[in-house]
Amino acid sequence: MTMILRFLSRSVLVCTLLLFLHSTYCSANDNITYRLKWLRNVSVVGALYAEHNQLFSKAGLNVTVKPGGPERDAIRELELGRADFGVASADQVLRARAKGAPIVVIAQLFQINPLQWIYRPEKLQLGSLADLKEKVIGVTFGGNDESIMRTLLAEGNLDSSQVRLFSVRYDYTPFYRKRVQLWPVYRNAQGPIITAQLAQEGEKTAYFNPADFGVKFVANSVVTHVRTLKEKPELVQRFLGVLLSGWQQALDPENEKAVLSLLQHYEPNIPQTIQQEQLRITRTLIQPDPTVAIGRIDHAGWDQTQEIMVSQKLLPHTFALQEILKPQKSL
């Protein structure tokens, strides 16, 4: 009798456990978490548009869009199973792959890196890289702007002793006070704000874009777990299709009014005229050429990003990028 009871109780326990695992697995199938790289602003407007207009649910997907931040790392969350898709910069992806993280890139959001340097053209002429000599240049030490700037200096045959690299923080005062001549900003997000502030003081601004000098460093891309791509390719296709459609619609000038009202909702302190400018610039960074599809993976850009990182010892060696870059058929 005791044996039977023990057997029954164990069976119930095992069944409960199996049911629990099954329900967890099912809910994981239905619910998708998409972790952004940064807070909800113009740089993620495509995802915001898709979320706000219920494009995901219309496609039968239950997607939760979660904002990112300095302490959020989408790649870690993918590996820990807390997110299904995420946004990560190319350097993050390459570093993670170098350490065995099983992630793949399924789309590249920015075709032109928004990370550029703002400067005052009346005080500074930047016709060639050699013009950077003896300038005070802001960089985030350890950030990818440092890697980009060091590459630019190397390309211009300058060593770091010929310029003064200034450690950049959250606050732009050193640039406003003209202690620093070139300051790194996200061209589409902070750029219009600073430009407007300096315009009020009668100062003109310009942007130093590394791509203009032949240095391409890929920015934000959409990533997922290798397992997700392998086991649920259809889900990946559907998700990405909706996300990129969200971007397409958000950048369409016909939808500008609705998009601006969405941006006002998340950043009410930024004047709409500035948000309009932010959106205009974002269009040129996401889709600089109408013949290029949104989300296209720029292999040449990835190659160069990888080379830069290897040359600066941020990566031990180069990788076969076809293992990492997995563009989807719909693109």
Binding site: I75, R76, E79, L80, R95, A96, K99, G100, A101, P102
Partner: peptide, 14 residues
């Protein structure tokens, strides 16, 4: 136990 990569938690060699 979770088979995490060295990116999430580095191994002893790293």
């Amino acid at each position: 136990s979770l088979q995490l990569s060295d990116y999430v938690i580095p191994g002893p060699v790293g």
